[in-house]
Write a protein that binds this DNA or RNA. Structure first.
Lengths: 125, 125
DNA sequence: ACAGAAATGATATTGAGTTATCAATATCGC
DNA sequence: GCGATATTGATAACTCAATATCATTTCTGT
């Protein structure tokens, strides 16, 4: 697919490497533009596609939210969505009970949990 | 908002009353059209809005999926998304552990769980 | 039955997110 | 460094869910 590497691609990759939470396309664009102000939205989406194809990035979908992206090398985790600042944080622990959760009529292969509430900054503000 | 009731509205309401799972606009439309073939998409969306305003319907958002709607009178529950037939089922039980789940830096006010796997029909097929 | 108002249905429009187009630019093997 | 070509950036175009428009139909109170 991609045959050459470019400053733009490397910059976008670094944005995700240095982010502690999954990013919206918009957020990734702003972050990348801080280093390369002329970087365009098309390039951002092209880079995201490359990085997904190469397995570097994966999609993070939260209910009712637009798509976010994060590095795929992370361990199994869930997300916390602050209802005040709207930011999404990673929740590293996964309630053990959920992994052993069984349902009579279904074969559970995976699960996704989204927590809602207030993040540290917002709860103290 | 709405001042008169109509056959269309009643039909759409019945569709949700008799459905065991949350419905996409598309699905609700097809179901309603089985009784009123001429019913249009605009009427469907208008009815959904009315039924939401009146508190009868609520929104169900699943990660990466378009909006579904279900009756809001149901108890706290979660959803199961069959990766084969793509249908969404209700999961009435909620793992107790999740309600008591705490995180050091966050105030958890709510949670949303989506299970993925195979439903009864698909696991046996 | 009639007039006024509300609801319908067909369709145009919106808006958000994403992809396609294409001339200009940057990259890489030689 | 040069030439071939992959990538970029600006922007047009697309997709999909949802809403607005508006002429027509239906309902309701008198």
């Amino acid at each position: 697919m991609r045959q050459r590497t470019s400053l733009q691609l490397r910059t976008i990759q670094q944005v995700f490497e240095s982010s502690k939470h999954p990013l919206l396309a918009e957020e990734a664009l702003s972050a990348a533009q801080r280093k390369l102000p002329s970087l365009g939205i098309a390039t951002l989406y092209r880079a995201i596609r490359s990085l997904r194809n190469s397995g570097f990035l994966k999609v993070v979908e939260l209910p009712g939210e637009s798509t976010r992206y994060e590095m795929s090398c992370k361990d199994h985790h869930h997300h916390f969505h602050c209802r005040k600042c709207k930011r999404v944080f990673e929740v590293e622990s996964c309630p053990a009970a959920i992994k052993n959760f069984k349902l009579p009529d279904f074969v559970i292969e995976d699960h996704e949990i989204t927590f809602y509430g207030l993040c540290t900054s917002c709860k103290d503000a």
